[in-house]
Amino acid sequence: MSDIPSAEPNHNALNIQGLCKYFFGLRALDGVSFSLSRGEILGLIGPNGSGKTTLINVVTGLLPATSGQVFVDGTEITNKKPYQIAYAGLARTFQTIRLFRELTVLENVEVAAVSMGLSRKAARQRAIEILEEIGISRWSEMLASVLPYGLERRVEIARALATQPKFLFLDEPAAGLNEDESEELLQVLSSIPARKNLGMLIVDHDMRLIMRLCNRLHVLNFGKTIGMGTPEEVRKIPAVLQAYLGKTVAGV
């Protein structure tokens, strides 16, 4: 399943081809290939330690790939520096929240627009609009360090959006949220790809959220792809059922 030959790099998509990441002996990623188009929501799922975060880290340049290639709109970005990859159009959030704690919520978002070349004034305007869209403009003057937990992840999403990415990677955006908050997040996220014409990759253990949000799923286990397809198709794949067997994950 993992060795599906990929086509020529698509000119309007993110293409990942045979990506490997070894930590000494450990194969955290072992030949993962897939592509993500603009406007699409792809769910990347798998048990704990299956390599989801590692994939995001390698694609965004935080970790060097052992082998394999990544293309954005046909241009190779493998092992470029993280800031160069951000310029190429990739943005992300972090599983362990990483906000600029001594900046206000507004500045957290503004700085992302500034780093893409906007003046402070124009960046501020863009940040105000995005905070409005994400529904956290009430908190814009607050220091990020005193923000309630449920909102921190939203600020990360707003910050990532302020770079106007072509592709957005969200690492467990619903982690630690209760059902209401998770529902609210779903509303916010579901409209983003179409409105912003970006491809969104979302990693989460909340299967209700994943199943409702994603057009397509990609399942990892021990760094290998064990299934891909629509949520309905993936549910029926024996290897996926096997990987999740004994786990109490709703919806699978």
Partner: peptide, 22 residues
Amino acid sequence: RIGLRLRATRDDAYAAASIGIN
């Protein structure tokens, strides 16, 4: 613009790099 970006790197270098800050 430089000062704001630098303060972002001070608070979190990884996050700063992820939004395109050199």
